[in-house]
Amino acid sequence: MTTHSHDHPNPYHESERDEATNKAMTERVDKMEALLLEKGLVSKEGIEKLADIYENDLGPMNGAKVVARAWVDADFKQRLLADATAAIAELGFGGLQGEHMVAKENTADIHNVVVCTLCSCYPWPVLGLPPSWYKSFAYRSKIVIEPREVLAEFGTTLSDDVEVRVWDSSAEIRYLVIPEQPEGTENLSEGELAEIIERDSMIGVTKVNAP
């Protein structure tokens, strides 16, 4: 159940917990849940529903739809770059922690990448939950100092004349990278484009590949 696959090895995975740690944490969280249920502060149904929404409905495909729209609709892209919060709301996405969105466009000359050096600020409503490597100290510290090396670890090699810009998220501002549209995808529909846009490209650690 907890297996996952990647196209390339990712150096920022957290180690697995041992059973004893898991058992202790499970009991601790269950105890809290029981207390909150007793006080009527949460409901079983409400918890399940929220978990489902964050895992399934607010995943990276919302962000992919935003990027795909920007690729096919130049006016939308301009609105997205001018006021990402409003443009994203046009597509029906918004909510917790995503109020102040800023979009950064990757071009042939500029490559943007996002981090949160303090904790793990992340545009949840468009990208779902942050991947574990995004929260690791290794990524948070190294991407600022050696962005090219970190990008190379994700399989993204940039030529020297490409400027790398690292954006540090905060409680107030969340960044979404608009990756470059790959060559040869001009004839794809907006829906088809959305399917090839992966989460990591919208954090800025990878590029989008043509299918």
Partner: peptide, 29 residues
């Protein structure tokens, strides 16, 4: 059709999921 294309499992253990949703749920309340 779309989700999980680039996704790894977002929660590694069940209690993480519960702790996460309790926090979100309480803030929404």
């Amino acid at each position: 059709a779309l989700p999980r294309k680039s996704g790894e499992m977002v929660f590694h253990d069940a209690w993480e999921r519960k702790s996460f949703t309790l926090a979100v749920s309480l803030s929404e309340q």
